[in-house]
Each structure stands twice: as C-alpha cells, then as structure tokens.
Design a binder for these strands. Structure first.
Length: 271
DNA sequence: AGTGCGGCCTGTCCGC
DNA sequence: TGCGGACAGGCCGCAC
C-alpha cells in the first residue's frame, strides 16, 4: 500500500491522538509479520508515554519515554485510531491501547509490515541507518542523484526506488516522477545528465508534496488514521494507465516490467 | 559494489 | 459459479 505520502498522511492523522498519551498495554493477535513482533511488547510498553510521532522514509517512529516503536506498513498495512470496544477484524494484528480510551490499530492482510522496538537512537537501527536522504529536504537534489548514479547501468527507476539513494519513493511515485520529468524509466542511471537529474529531483519533490496534500493514493484499501481514503489516485498521470492516452500527447501509455516492478510511461514524451 | 532474484503473505481480478 | 494463475503500493538477504 503505502509509500512516503501515505505514511506521512497516516502520521499526521494519528499524531494528535497519541502524542502525550500513556500506553496502557499492547494486544498482539498475530506475531508473525515481516519480522516477529517483539516478545513482551505489552509488558515493555505499559506505562510508557508517547512523546513523538515521526517518520523516516516509510518508517513510522513512535517515541516513548524509554523506547522507539518502529512501524512499517509493508504492502498492505494501515493504522487507524479506534475506540475501545471496536471489534478487531481478521487482519487487525496489533493494538496499542492508550490511556485516553483510544487504540492505535494495525491492520495488515499481507503481513509484509513490521512492528519493532528499540531502546537506542532509532536513526542507528539497522533498518533506518542506511536510508538515503529524505526526498523533501535540501539534502536530496539533482547533484546528489547524479553523483550516486555514476557508473550505474541499472534503470533510473530502480535507482530512485533504492532506499539507500533516496528514502520513501515507491513504485507509484517513481513512475509519476519520471513521467513529469520526461525521462524513460528504463534509461540507464549512469547515462543521464546532471541537468536532467535536477529536473527529476524536482519532479520527485513535486509529486510527493502534491500526494501528501491530497491525503495519499488509495488503490485498494489505503486509509488514513480516521479510516478515510486519499484522493491522489485521480491525479495519477502514468501509474496504472496502460493503454490510456497520455495527457500531453495522446499517445497510449505503455507498461513494462523493470526490476520486477511494473512501470508505466509515455513512449513519446519520455526520453 | 552493483545487480538480479527468491521469498515472505493474502486478496482480488481475469480468463477459462 | 468455480478454479487456477497472475498480479499487487515493499524490501531483505543472498548469490553472482
């Protein structure tokens, strides 16, 4: 489900309900996610106050008095606030039960998501440590992309989906950004000019910013912390539009698998 | 070091 | 209406 805009939408939705609130307990109905949910989660979190709801790439970082709860939504995960007493569905795997009568509930049918716990600086966690810059900061720009692309023969789409290069760009927004930038997704990363990478970096920032403003993209079941869908789906120009006319030139949008992921592009506008 | 895959899961959709 | 197979928003860990 979620790329950076969907995770950010989730973060903004839940933050007001959880920050400054004490955790009473955790209910774990299914431990087997991407990695096992830590043993003793409820015992360790009971009494902890949530002090922050941050995001790094696609990871949500819930800071508490002594820990950070690291949450990843994988392919099909969503988080929402429910009141105590709302019955869990079959894929509602974890609840954080809060002192204000609300629960933060993780639903994840495919179980590619994760709930982890660390006592240390979360930025040093193995899953976080090697992430590239946040795409919406100044650390991410065309010069950075151009430098990291040097010598790479893989497709540029694979480059911008590599979380070590830039954090949080997934399959939807990679296709969208390349469409906006007029670059073919299959073009070899090492053979693109600095000038074009500057355009691409701008396109990544633009598409992610606009998607956040629209509350993310709901393809199947993405919902924000209140259970509402996002509206960026209606603004997708390439992703999922194979065979439909390009908004610029009317040529049929093409699709092709690159790096095991489906890619969508205009064979005329993108070079 | 960079690249390409298998694998982890369930739900949905499509063609027969 | 049922069934098999392909596919889906991620990404680690491994072999080469």
């Amino acid at each position: 489900m979620p790329e950076l805009p969907e995770v950010e939408t989730t973060r903004r939705g839940i933050a007001p309900h959880i920050t400054g609130v004490i955790i009473r307990a955790a209910v774990v109905r299914q431990r087997r996610l991407r990695w096992p949910v830590p043993a003793g989660l409820s015992r360790r979190l009971a009494g902890q106050v949530i002090t922050a709801a941050d995001r790094r790439g696609k990871y949500l970082l819930l800071g508490t008095s002594d820990f950070t709860v690291i949450i990843h939504l994988g392919m099909s995960g969503s988080l929402r606030m429910v009141t105590d007493g709302v019955m869990p569905g079959p894929h509602d795997h974890v609840d954080l039960c809060l002192g204000n009568g609300l629960r933060l509930r993780l639903r994840d049918p495919r179980r590619f998501g994760a709930v982890l716990l660390t006592r240390r600086d979360p930025m040093l966690h193995p899953l976080i440590r090697n992430l590239g810059p946040e795409p919406l900061t100044d650390a991410f720009d065309g010069a950075w992309l151009h430098r990291r692309a040097a010598g790479r023969r893989a497709p540029v789409k694979s480059l911008i989906m590599d979380s070590r290069i830039v954090a949080g760009v997934g399959n939807i927004y990679a296709s969208e950004a390349l469409f906006l930038a007029g670059i073919l997704p299959a073009r070899r990363a090492g053979r693109i000019s600095l000038k074009r990478y500057e355009v691409l970096a701008g396109a990544v920032k633009r598409v992610l910013t606009e998607a956040i403003e629209q509350g993310g993209t709901s393809l199947r079941d993405f919902v924000n912390g209140s259970g509402e869908p996002g509206y960026f789906l209606q603004r997708l120009l390439a992703y999922g539009r194979a065979g439909e006319p390009c908004v610029n030139c009317k040529t049929a949008i093409a699709q092709r698998v690159l790096g095991q992921r489906m890619s969508y592009y205009c064979p005329r506008c993108q070079r």
